[in-house]
Structures are given as structure tokens and as C-alpha cells.
Nucleic acid binder design. Sequence first.
DNA 1: GCAAAAGTGTTAGCTTTACACCCATGG
DNA 2: CCATGGGTGTAAAGCTAACACTTTTGC
Lengths: 225, 225
Amino acid sequence: MPGIDLAVSTVIFALRPCADGAARVWLPLVRRTRDPFAERWALPGGVADLDESLSATAARKLFETTALQPAYLEQLYAFGEPDRSPTGRVVSIVYWALVRAEQAEASTVDDNVRWFEADALPELAFDHNLIVDYALWRLRTKMEYSRIAHAFLGETFTLSELRQVHEAVLGKPLDPANFRRQVESSPAIVRTEQHVTGGRHRPPRLYRYDADIELVDNGPLSARS
Amino acid sequence: MPGIDLAVSTVIFALRPCADGAARVWLPLVRRTRDPFAERWALPGGVADLDESLSATAARKLFETTALQPAYLEQLYAFGEPDRSPTGRVVSIVYWALVRAEQAEASTVDDNVRWFEADALPELAFDHNLIVDYALWRLRTKMEYSRIAHAFLGETFTLSELRQVHEAVLGKPLDPANFRRQVESSPAIVRTEQHVTGGRHRPPRLYRYDADIELVDNGPLSARS
DNA sequence: GCAAAAGTGTTAGCTTTACACCCATGG
DNA sequence: CCATGGGTGTAAAGCTAACACTTTTGC
């Protein structure tokens, strides 16, 4: 008797410098080795584990295929149309993750795992193009009202780095002066007394996030693991 | 071999007049007749159907238990902690729905289906209290940036009725003058030439929604069924 | 000094909020 | 004519966006 298969997949985003120097949004995909969609690129994932929470499965699968450890992980959506897999009914609980730039550079890259620019993907397996489009939309809309940009950066960062993250995700330039005021008015971002020297200009101040403040307000779900 | 059971449940919201005349948010629950949690109240739902989309299953289960047909239906979240059911692993894809007031009055109410005020629920089965809290949070936050209030109303409505919907959901009074301007500046709401007579005051104008404009912007997912 | 990026100041225009006030109807 | 809610006007306060300008570094 055929049942419904439950899968967990993850859309992983990182910022990587583009040809022209500006940062862009990239994501790692895995090459399918079996039918259906053999040789096509797909999101990393696999079948759900009986003894593990869904988010733990997402994090584990993600680490096993790409060696990445995400700074942020959130459920995106459950995709379950009856015809989304030609081999039978599969419901995929999809997560999305953000990883820091250093992490992204150190990730596994071989013949079966490769990074792609999010805005220029090939045709993917299953409904994965739609899934990535939706994840990108969520990343962009959520960037405007939450602090997730921090997940792309290290412990401390300059306002210029933070602004470049926003610019890369939103795909448009922001006014440095107004961006600064907007950020400084937020209690979640605190200035340190450290500065970065070495650039051929005035040394910028380093900032850090207040760890007591959640990156995202998920209401009643925020307290959960 | 024990596997993972896939369930579909729905949080159904409707507005009903409270004791003091003001409208409040209510939802229908079903009484469990079997262990675990026998006699406790729970969200309507059941196991996923092999040949049906998840949203279709949600709508069907909802209709079978309450005889309601929702004006709005959206996926809320997939709940899948390993310990959320004492009898085995269950992943629940939860939807949330809005129904019009006339619908709510005509719904099935018997010994095993009853309406409860959303802010004063008893202890429910499984993790359903958390689920309702999250759905309520989503309803309230989404009310502020989308047009879902329309799903609580009929084809045409007065601005006063629309304002009362917002007030009931947000739980606070709104300035009628400012609310009017805010609504009239939106292209999604259009004035008709009809007025309501019979009240002992100036007859209010009727408005309707422009059906061409989606209630909610779900980005790339908006086009889907 | 000069280039470049950090950081500050200023202003016009828009949005929000609070509240005063007039309008049309039933009783 | 009065109570009631419908509907309009208006001004203060706050926020946003654009951009001029000053500061501090490396070369």
C-alpha cells in the first residue's frame, strides 16, 4: 500500500562576492544521481527521521551534504501538492537557512555540490524553483522588519558591512547616512569601542548585536528550539 | 515498523458578538472521543489523504466536522516535535481559516463541536494551545498589512463594520476618522453608490473589495491554489 | 594635499495621530 | 429638536529621503 513520504529540505543562503565586487545571494545545490530528475540540481534534504525534530533533521541533512552550520534556521513551508513528484506522494517540510560568509567559503564543493547565484538558477528538480523563489521572497521581506542580516555576519561588524548585506539582499543601494541612523536607533545593535584600522580611510567603528534580543519575532513560537 | 503519521488540522476563526455587544474572536473545537486526551477539546482535522492537496484536505475535514466553508484558508505551520503525541510520531500540517459571521451562526453545534472565545480557552489536547496562540498571533500581525479583514464580512459592508472587524481582532479601539482615510486611500476597497437605511442616524455608504486584488500578498505562492 | 570612506547636520515632504466639527436620519 | 453614528477638516508631531558637509585615515 503506497503511503505519503515525508521529506525535509532546506534552502541555504549565503552572500558571496560577484564578478563586479558587489555581494550577491548564493545557494548550494546537490546534483541528483537517480531518477526522477537524474542529473538535475536540487535542494539538499532527505526523508524525515523518526526520532528527531524537523528542524534537527534539516540541520543534520544540511551539514551532511554541505558541511555548513547555519547561523539561522527557520521553517519556510510544507509543500504537498499530489503531483509534485512523479514517483509518488511526497510532502516536503522545507526550511531556510542563513550562513556566514566564512562558513560558505569553507563548505564542501565537489562534482555533486555546487553554489549558484539565487537570481540565475537553472531548471531544478521537482518544484524546487518555486520553493527557492518563495524562500528568496521571504528573505527579502523579512530583512525589512527583522534583524536577520546579522546571521550573515560575524560577532562584530562595521555599519558599512551591515549595509552591504542589506544592499545585496534587497538588490538596491541604500543611503549610508539614513541607514546609520535607522540602525543606531535600534536597541538590538550596540556600538563597541573598537575600530577597524588598515583601510585607507577613517577607521570605522565596530558594532555587535545584543544577544538578549531575538533576531526575529515569531510570536508564541519564539521560545521553541 | 512504526512510521511518521501525517495529519492536517485547522484553526478556524470567526467573529461573534460578546456579552457586552462588542465582537470578539471565536473558534470551533471538537471533543476527542478516544485516548490520548479523551474528552479534551482539540482542533478539527485528521490524517492526510493520499490523493488530495493539503489545503483541500484541510477544507474538507473542516467542512465535515463543522459544516463551515471558509472565506480564507492559509497554511500556518508544520508542527513535528517528536514528543507532541504520546502514541507515536505525528507531524501536523496546520492551516488557519476565516469564516463569515453568517456562516458561523449556521455551523454545526452539538455535544462534540462547540465554539470557544479565542482568548479564554481551556486546556486542549496535544500542543493545540500553542498552535492556537500562534494562529492568533498570525491573524493579528497579518491584519495590519493585508486585507484579510474582508474574509470576515459579506460582499458589501460599511466602513463601520470593517472597523469593528479590525477592532475585534486587534482588541483596541480605532479612530473612525483616521481609519476611514486609511481605507479610502487603498485601491483594493471601492465605494458603491448604495447606502444602508434603517439606522437612527445618517445612512452609511456601502463599500466592496476589488476582486482583482488578492487579499494577501504571498509572493511567489500567491498564484497557487 | 588628495582620495575615500566614516560620520554628522539639515530640510522638504510625507504620514500619523488627535480631536474639533458638520451632516443626515429616526424617533 | 435631540441623540447617534456618518463623514470632513485641520494642525501638531513624527518619520523618511535626499543630499550637503565635516572628519580621519593611507598614500
